[in-house]
């Protein structure tokens, strides 16, 4: 799987990429929602987007809404420092909302596995 990682914090992005790559995915990092939009406009070869929630300018949620409204159809996983329960079920079409905590490796890869399933099946 090829995944676009969006995070303004370079270390956090590295961390996310490390987890994804360890799980056998390829990760491409961009620093902002705008960059993500640009990248996705020219490169259609992504299987999912993993984005940080809290970014300057366009937030992760805004990025998701724009992509959803633009009918990108890409599975979108939101990473947040806050309790992910807050968002669960609030945003139709959001594949998963994952908490940035000590269990990130596990919860993120579970979310990725869920995204991957329908495609594989």
């Amino acid at each position: 799987m090829r995944i676009l990682v969006v995070d303004d914090d370079a270390l956090a992005a590295e961390m996310t990429a490390a987890v994804l790559e360890d799980g056998g995915c390829e990760a491409v990092i961009v620093e902002s929602g705008d960059q993500a939009m640009e990248t996705l406009a020219t490169d259609r070869d992504f299987d999912a987007v993993v984005s940080d929630m809290n970014m300057p300018g366009m937030s992760g949620l805004e990025l998701f809404r724009r992509l959803r409204d633009g009918k990108s159809g890409l599975p979108f996983i939101l990473l947040s420092g806050d309790d992910p329960e807050q968002l669960r079920g609030q945003e139709p079409g959001l594949a998963a909302c994952v908490a940035k905590d000590a269990e990130l490796e596990e919860t993120l890869m579970t979310a990725i596995a869920e995204v991957r399933l329908p495609a594989a099946g």
């Binding site: 914090d9 956090a12 809290n54 420092g81 806050d82 908490a99 905590d101």
Partner: peptide
């Protein structure tokens, strides 16, 4: 907020 999230996942 970044401190909270990044430090937790690290």
């Amino acid at each position: 907020h970044n401190l909270k999230g990044t430090a937790a996942s690290l």
